[in-house]
Nucleic acid binder design. Structure first.
Lengths: 132, 132
DNA sequence: CTTGAAAATAATAACTATTACTGTTTTTAT
DNA sequence: ATAAAAACAGTAATAGTTATTATTTTCAAG
């Protein structure tokens, strides 16, 4: 039973994440937290991100672009990756759990969780392409 | 315009993939193809897997376990990862495209594709735990 | 307050999956 | 047959992440 001790670095990482909605990567977190703690190491960032997601305070997500991203919003929701600019945005699908239940009808085992990732073009990129 | 030339190695990789439903990783493909072509290199396996997925003959998938997997079935379907044994199985959700259309109502941009991954316990692992 | 054990840190090494490079071999159209 | 394009094997390099280690910080008990 390993107890948790306070650390300013972890606090700073958590606070940073809570202020962002763009699902930053570990490296992005590192770059920003370093402004407050110039000596922080990337390993510390990774260790705390992993710890925080292990205890459920943040979630780690993978939208298929080869990097792990982190999200302070742990409520159930979905993500969309813009194939134009690469941004990762939230989508809150009402009744998303119905999809999981529905899928259960077509599978012999038990389904417990689902991850839905969309891909498309974000509204900003749409505007830009319309300006041509 | 780069033309495609035949290669036995690529043929063998494709044939191997078509005979499998378990979404092998590049390394698994490598292990098996090496039985027929002992000198094949992992780079060749990766290059051909990438080429085949680029031209749409196979698909590359990422179920969030840090490794790319490959699937000779390019028809739209979903996957479930067993959190017990790690296997990756197919789920064919009827009318899955309705989810994508539905999601469009809650997003300002354009959604073009979706990837749905489930997690749970496969029927084999359920049997084993029931035997206790 | 001290103190000391547990936890966290910075720095760095190691690891894993994947891609890039290079000189040689294979394919295939002429 | 030949020669240019493509693919190859072998190997090096890259990127993202985790592990190791010696030092520092946290914090409960005295």
């Amino acid at each position: 039973m390993k107890s948790l001790k306070y650390s300013r670095q972890r606090e700073c990482i958590k606070t940073f994440l809570m202020g962002r909605k763009d699902h930053p990567t570990a490296d992005t977190v590192y770059m920003h937290v370093r402004q407050e703690y110039p000596n922080i190491s990337l390993g510390t960032v990774y260790r705390n991100l992993t710890l925080l997601s292990d205890i459920g305070e943040i979630s780690r997500l993978n939208v298929g672009d080869g990097v792990d991203r982190f999200d302070a919003d742990t409520s159930p929701h979905q993500h969309i990756v813009c194939t134009c600019c690469g941004c990762v945005q939230d989508i809150y699908l009402p009744d998303a759990e119905k999809i999981l239940n529905y899928a259960g009808n077509f599978y012999g085992g038990i389904i417990t969780t689902q991850t839905i990732n969309f891909r498309g073009t974000c509204s900003d990129c749409l505007k830009i392409s319309n300006n041509n």
